[in-house]
């Protein structure tokens, strides 16, 4: 079965990590992905740019920042390759759920 592991962290705390700590953590993440690959368990993985770079589309409005409502829950995702944030927002607005819920757009670390 396919399972999505959603990784949540305190962004501010992570940004304050001393370089050496961060280096070790980065190494640990590399090793983890390696282990997943060797186990033939990895289908895909992505790091996301911080919430300060997120935009959320609701009905037709575009809001700065990540999704932040308690009445709605994560139901799915799309990963896309487009020239820029405008294009990504365009796709977000077209999503059938945009009128009824919210679509958060987050740049991905490449």
């Amino acid at each position: 079965m396919q399972v999505l592991l959603l990784m949540y962290q305190d962004e501010k705390a992570m940004q304050k990590l001393p370089r050496e700590e961060y280096g070790k953590l980065h190494g640990a993440f590399m090793a983890y992905v390696d282990a997943l690959k060797k186990a033939r368990a990895l289908v895909g993985n992505h790091g996301l740019r911080p919430t300060s770079e997120a935009r959320t589309v609701r009905k037709d409005a575009v809001l700065d920042g990540p999704f932040a409502e308690t009445k709605e829950q994560l139901a799915g995702y799309f990963l896309l390759e487009v020239p820029d944030m405008e294009a990504a927002l365009g796709w977000a607005k077209r999503h059938p759920s945009a009128p009824y819920g919210a679509v958060e757009v987050r740049p991905v670390w490449t």
Partner: peptide
């Protein structure tokens, strides 16, 4: 060591393996 680090869930043990590496 890389394999061991990726498979270890205890952060202290993971850090130890990273030091060995």
């Amino acid at each position: 060591y890389q394999r061991a680090i990726g498979l270890e869930s205890d952060p202290a043990l993971r850090a130890f393996l990273q030091r060995e590496l």
